[in-house]
Nucleic acid binder design. Sequence first.
DNA 1: CCGAATCCTGTTTGATACTG
DNA 2: CAGTATCAAACAGGATTCGG
Lengths: 118, 118
Amino acid sequence: MTPMKTTGTDCQYEMIAAQDALELIQGRWRIPIVLSIVYGNKRFGEIRRAVSNISPKMLSQELKALEENKIIIRQLYDTMPITVEYSLTPLGASMRQLLVELLNWGTSFRKALIDKNH
Amino acid sequence: MTPMKTTGTDCQYEMIAAQDALELIQGRWRIPIVLSIVYGNKRFGEIRRAVSNISPKMLSQELKALEENKIIIRQLYDTMPITVEYSLTPLGASMRQLLVELLNWGTSFRKALIDKNH
DNA sequence: CCGAATCCTGTTTGATACTG
DNA sequence: CAGTATCAAACAGGATTCGG
């Protein structure tokens, strides 16, 4: 399959791939969470501080979903008190290029909007 | 700004860029809609057929949002009956690389999940 | 053909307080 | 520290009907 083929009318395959990816990426929190882990393993509280305004409930819930989708790994260390560390799987790490493009585009999108409003 | 810098602790700028982008991209429909227009202008009914299972209400609503965010342009032709054509703005067209990465990743994500389930 | 308007439902999200 | 529990609010999405 060649992504973004130029034939035009038929883009069913692209649609499916896009919707697969979107199903995981969706929501306000998952991308920021992955982004906060991409530089190195992080603990619950660290992620919480990096992703501002996320409630513990949402963070817990989204981390669980990401783990189920094999994007991140949860490592429990039986210290006192308990510590937990999250890291990316290879699949999660393979999101890097996508994240780069998202950040690039997000930056130009923000600039474009600001320019228009003044 | 260098995207994905490797310093580690501080990624506030990246977070903001990501959340800007996400705000627009979010939801099940917007990316598929943009994807359906990226190959060339399309009319309402054409988009509706390309993005399977979308209701006219959601399509109308999401098109409006995309127009307000300067991603697409709505062109009204005063024929009989009326025809409407949607096309990408330069800002919309600049999503191309992001879409490519999304499709690439979506494909490998799907493959990874299938492999694990068998 | 291209939507707009209305109503309705379930899911998602959030604030807050609490636990091992 | 790393989460759960609970309750309320917000929102996404569908069905249907209507109009230019």
